[in-house]
C-alpha cells in the first residue's frame, strides 16, 4: 500500500501538462546560472520578462484558439497592421483612446474575418489565416512601400503599455501576466472554458450536447486577433516606430510556445498558463545563451531541438499523468 501511495504522490505533478515547460525553465535556469552568475540578477530576469511579454501575449491568444481547435497564422501581420494603424491615427490628430480602440478593433475584425472564412467558408483555418497573413502584409507593404512608420507626436498615455515600473521591469510584463492569468482562469474555471476544450477536443460531441461550436471558435479567433493587436501596441509604444515587416515569424514562435507549453496541434489539449510559461522559456534561452557567451548563431537551432524534446516529453508525460490521474 505504502509504495503505491508514494508512487501516486510522486506522479501528481505529471497530471499537469505544464510540467515539461516548468522543468525546462528550472533546468535551463540552473545551467545558465552556472555559466554566468549574472543570469540570476533582477535586471536579467526583468529583461527576460520584457522579451517574453510580446510573444507571451500573442501566445496566450494563439493557445486559447488552438485549444478550441483552430490555428491563427495571421497574428504576426496583425501585430504590425494594428500598431501601424494606431501610429497613423495618432499622427493624424486622433486621440489616444480612439487609436487604441481602432487598433484593438482591427485585431478583432481580422479575427472575425478569419472566423468567417474558416467557419462559413469551411476552409481549414491554417489556410484561411495564412491567406489573411499575406493579404495584410501585402496591404502594409503596398501602403508604406516598405518604409517604417514613425510616431511623430508625443503621446504620454502610451506609457501604460510599456513604461518601466521598477528597474528594468516594464508594464508590458504586467499586461502579459494579467492576460495569461485571466485567460487561464476562463479556460479552467468557467463554463465557457469548458466549451472551448470540448469544441477543440471533439466538435461533434460539443455540438451534439448543444454547444454553439461556431460561436465558441469565433470568440477564440477574436481573442487571438486582439492579443496580437495588443502586443503590437506594446512594441510600438516603446520604440515609436513600426516596420511593415514587424512581427514576421511571430506566428510560428507563438504556435511553438503553445506546443512547448502542452497544447496539441489537433486541439482540445493544453493550457494558457503552459503557453505563457513557454514564451518565458523561449526568452530565457535567448537571453541565457547570450549571457553564457554561446555563439549567437546557435539560438535558432537550439530552439528547434528544444521544441522536439519538449514535444516528446509532453506526449509521454501526458500519457503517464492521465493513466495515474
Amino acid at each position: 500500500m505504502a509504495p503505491s501511495q508514494l508512487k501516486r504522490l510522486l506522479l501528481i505533478p505529471l497530471k499537469y501538462r505544464e510540467v515539461g515547460v516548468v522543468t525546462s525553465i528550472i533546468v535551463f535556469a540552473g545551467i545558465f546560472y552556472y555559466l554566468n552568475e549574472q543570469f540570476a540578477s533582477p535586471d536579467t530576469l526583468a529583461s527576460i520578462a520584457t522579451l517574453a511579454a510580446e510573444l507571451g501575449i500573442i501566445a496566450v491568444g494563439v493557445s486559447f484558439l488552438m485549444i478550441a481547435g483552430e490555428f491563427d497564422l495571421s497574428v504576426g501581420a496583425v501585430f504590425a497592421a494594428s500598431s501601424m494603424l494606431a501610429v497613423w491615427m495618432l499622427n493624424n490628430g486622433y486621440s489616444f483612446p480612439e487609436a487604441v480602440i481602432a487598433a484593438l478593433g482591427l485585431g478583432a475584425a481580422v479575427g472575425l474575418a478569419n472566423a468567417a472564412v474558416t467557419l462559413i467558408g469551411r476552409i481549414p483555418s491554417f489556410i484561411a489565416t495564412l491567406g489573411m497573413m499575406w493579404m495584410i502584409r501585402g496591404v502594409l507593404l503596398a501602403i508604406t512601400k516598405g518604409f517604417p512608420m514613425r510616431l511623430e507626436v508625443e503621446v504620454p498615455e502610451l506609457s501604460i503599455f510599456s513604461a518601466p515600473i521598477a528597474g528594468d521591469l516594464r508594464v508590458s510584463a504586467v499586461w502579459f501576466l494579467a492576460l495569461a492569468g485571466v485567460f487561464h482562469f476562463i479556460l479552467v474555471s468557467t463554463a465557457f472554458g469548458n466549451w472551448i476544450q470540448a469544441v477543440g477536443g471533439s466538435p461533434a460531441t460539443a455540438r451534439a450536447l448543444g454547444v454553439n461550436v461556431n460561436l465558441v471558435k469565433t470568440v477564440g479567433f477574436v481573442v487571438s486577433g486582439m492579443s496580437a493587436a495588443l502586443a503590437g501596441l506594446i512594441a510600438m509604444s516603446r520604440f515609436k516606430v513600426v516596420e511593415p515587416v514587424a512581427g514576421v515569424g511571430l506566428e510560428l514562435e507563438a504556435i511553438a510556445s503553445a506546443v512547448i507549453g502542452g497544447c496539441s496541434l489537433t486541439g482540445g489539449v493544453g493550457t494558457v498558463a503552459g503557453a505563457a510559461l513557454a514564451a518565458f522559456l523561449v526568452s530565457e534561452i535567448r537571453t541565457g545563451l547570450i549571457l553564457a557567451g554561446a555563439p549567437a548563431y546557435w539560438y535558432i537551432g537550439f530552439m528547434g531541438f528544444l521544441l522536439i524534446v519538449v514535444g516528446i516529453i509532453n506526449l509521454r508525460v501526458g500519457k503517464v499523468g492521465v493513466r495515474y490521474g
Binding site: 476544450q197 471533439s202 496539441s264 489539449v269
Partner: peptide, 8 residues
Amino acid sequence: DMALVPYM
C-alpha cells in the same frame, strides 16, 4: 464514438 470528449 462521440458521446464524450476524450481529453476532458
